[in-house]
Design a protein around this nucleic acid. Structure first.
Lengths: 234, 234
DNA sequence: CTACAGTCTACTGTTAACAATCCAATCAAC
DNA sequence: GTTGATTGGATTGTTAACAGTAGACTGTAG
């Protein structure tokens, strides 16, 4: 029993492997727009440009497919995923179901240590001058906040389901160009309110709050998509 | 979990590749108990016994990891997943969230053609003599029923989230040994009722119904787990 | 007996060559 | 002009050999 008294601080260092690096590179390339939607991902090309063999490339592509960034068809290769209005509907309806469960579990299971990262993100948000705030920066903070929320739920399978949506949501957050002042203000207020409710462990209030939160986000996205690309109704 | 023999009309024939066969073999071996929980899966051994190289084996293992049947650690290999009470809690809480969304979407989107497979499964259930009914057979019909329900929701991402749980739920359904008469009766009634409500497109009723359905299943499972293995409270 | 260093083996991660498949271009037939 | 077969190049699926790591095993010292 007294084998190793100190467990939590030192975790087994997560070994990184080539596939991990490749997946990160490709993800970044897609999210930054260097690979355009619908573009083919050719294993040989990627292998050469990243200086690895095709093995890790294939595995990374498979992983990105799980994340919804890439579509893969047998013997036909992988392409960067296209998103339509229908995809947005799927993503946000599933997201709402997942986050409702997440806040419920977070209310019940989260310790103060779990919620600290959420505070930190809000603090970081406020510390950044509005002038130097970019769309991408807000998107990162947004994803990080919700990611921390899912972690706080202490629910491994729920977290993995969230991982399958996370990158796709990030894509949506990057879509809009402007960054109006009132958006930044309401962003902070909405997330601070959500965190306060979770901290108070009021499950019904938390569920209502997250529902409104997600629905509002979906509403803004839908409006934007209808404005810019009314054609593809998926 | 029987494969639907009817190919969907006018769709690109799904090309099968070695990885698919390997994944099926391994899944079957795990679900049938030939590979025991916690057992290591050694790539070379599997490759030799299945007469393929290690490439497809590795890919299949990653796929099974996604399904939650195996656990993989870098440089340490894959083992058959162990399930604890905590896992059961995760699986059923997530399942409830997913199925609530599924019935809601099914109420809204499902055509009569989508619901026909559900009728067929119930009919098939009744056509099998109680004497020749096995635990495994009921489990297959159960999974098939819910699988058809998820398909009827017409929600690709939701279906993929369900796929990540499906096999694990199947494992739970196989756990219990007996097959009491009243279980068979209530199984039929519960599923027939659920289908009727979905067909009537009464969303709130359907959600309530599926909640009770999943909670009842979880209750039975928990009771069983506490009886047989009260040690691992994981 | 316990603790620790060095070796050894079994296994996974990676690579590069080989085989099978798709797709577009070409051309013949109707 | 459209349909259907053919062929060649590009690209993915598969294999087998190579490289690196984790864990067990030995032996030694305290």
């Amino acid at each position: 029993m007294s084998k190793s008294p100190i467990t939590p601080p030192l975790q087994r260092r997560e070994r990184r492997v080539l596939t991990d690096d490749v997946a990160d590179s490709l993800r970044e390339a897609i999210l930054s727009g260097r690979f355009k939607r619908g573009e083919r991902l050719i294993e040989d090309e990627l292998a050469e440009s990243l200086n690895v063999s095709r093995g890790p490339i294939r595995q990374a592509i498979f992983r990105l497919q799980q994340e919804g960034l890439v579509v893969h068809e047998t013997h036909r290769g992988a392409t960067v995923a296209q998103i339509s209005l229908h995809d947005a509907s799927e993503i946000y309806s599933l997201r709402k179901a997942l986050e409702k469960l997440a806040v419920e579990q977070a209310c019940r299971n989260a310790t103060e240590a779990d919620l600290a990262p959420l505070d930190a993100i809000l603090l970081l948000f406020q510390s950044i001058p509005r002038a130097s705030m970019t769309r991408r920066r807000v998107a990162e903070l947004d994803i990080d906040f919700h990611d921390a929320l899912f972690r706080a739920a202490h629910h491994g399978r729920l977290y993995r389901a969230w991982e399958a949506l996370r990158s796709q949501i990030f894509v949506f957050l990057l879509l809009r160009d402007g960054l109006p002042e009132d958006y930044l203000t309401s962003w902070y207020q909405a997330h601070a309110r959500l965190l306060a409710i979770v901290r108070s462990q009021d499950v019904p209030a938390a569920i209502t709050c997250i529902e409104e939160h997600i629905e509002a986000a979906y509403g803004r996205l839908k409006e934007h998509l209808l404005e810019t690309e009314p054609a593809q109704a998926g």
